[in-house]
């Protein structure tokens, strides 16, 4: 099963993994509740910090307190979504390669990267997602924003494209793990690099701002969706979206290259 034909099958695989992870969590019901509270607290630290700092200063250029709260809501939402959809991908890849079981992926009737990405579901991302939605709803109601017919669809599309960009970066990381046999602290590095997107891009100097909007469109995860909800559209969003999708294809190509090197070298 190759290319786009594999998509329905991979989606089914993803859903199946969801069910599995949920029932695994339900088996330890009390752990699940405790774990949910903790993941909520954990993902809540960054927004709380930003809020505290923001309110004792004049804030960030171009954002009021209320708007920043909305931003934090999107931050939580994105953090939750990306954990839910992709949370297990890197740990899984790391453990497969580390224990020499990566070849397992190669004998499945689907593209290995597809299988890997479909196995990323992590239930602990659910709580921050819901929290994010709640905060977004609350701040929208206190802001005077006009709601258009395209607001929600565009928001969701940006979320989807954000997933594509994130997937692209994950694939790149997987290439590194495959070649280097292990991740070491590269995972930490990955997280730190992505933390650029946790703040409104207006804080960055112009050049970096352009970088994060277009060439390395981190802004697509939080900044652009937040802008959409605030009716602050601009054309760079389109560019960012296009580049995200292009990057997905590029890193997928790189992955196929690494994979063929791996299989020709005997694994």
């Amino acid at each position: 099963m190759r290319g786009l034909m594999a998509l329905p099958g991979l989606l089914r695989l993803f859903l199946w993994n969801c069910k599995l992870d949920i029932s695994r969590n339900m088996a330890y019901r009390f752990n699940f509740i405790a774990g949910t509270l903790i993941s909520l607290l954990n993902s809540g630290v960054a927004p709380i910090v930003q809020y505290l700092i923001f309110t004792t200063t004049n804030g960030y250029p171009g954002w009021t307190v209320q708007q920043l709260i909305l931003f934090q809501g999107v931050l939580l939402l994105w953090g939750g979504v990306r954990t839910m959809v992709f949370g297990r991908v890197l740990p899984e890849m790391n453990s497969l390669v580390g224990s020499g079981e990566f070849d397992r992926l190669l004998v499945k009737p689907y593209p290995p990267m597809g299988v890997l990405l479909a196995s990323g579901f992590q239930l602990s991302g659910f709580a921050p997602t819901i929290a994010g939605v709640v905060i977004i709803a609350m701040s929208l109601s206190s802001l005077d924003v006009v709601w258009h017919w395209w607001t929600l669809p565009l928001f969701l599309v940006l979320l989807l494209v954000g997933c594509c960009l994130y997937a692209a970066l994950l694939i790149l990381m997987c290439c590194i793990i495959l070649v280097a046999i292990q991740m070491g602290r590269l995972g930490e590095l990955f997280e730190k690099l992505l933390s650029f997107s946790d703040y409104p891009i207006s804080i960055y100097p112009r050049i970096l701002g352009r970088l994060f909007s277009i060439a390395l469109p981190f802004a697509i995860w939080i900044n652009f969706p937040a802008q959409t909800l605030l009716n602050r559209l601009d054309v760079t969003m389109i560019w960012g979206a296009i580049v995200s999708i292009v990057l997905l294809f590029v890193s997928h190509g790189l992955w196929k290259l690494c994979l063929s090197k791996y299989t020709s070298a005997g694994g």
């Binding site: 070491g184 602290r185 930490e188 590095l189 730190k192 933390s195």
Partner: peptide, 29 residues
Amino acid sequence: ASFGISLVIFPIVLIVNVMLFESLYAYSG
């Protein structure tokens, strides 16, 4: 071997913070 990575990770943290706070302080006057 794994210690070398910090030399790369940490400066990123610094750079993000520099930009964040320069903008914050400038804006707050």
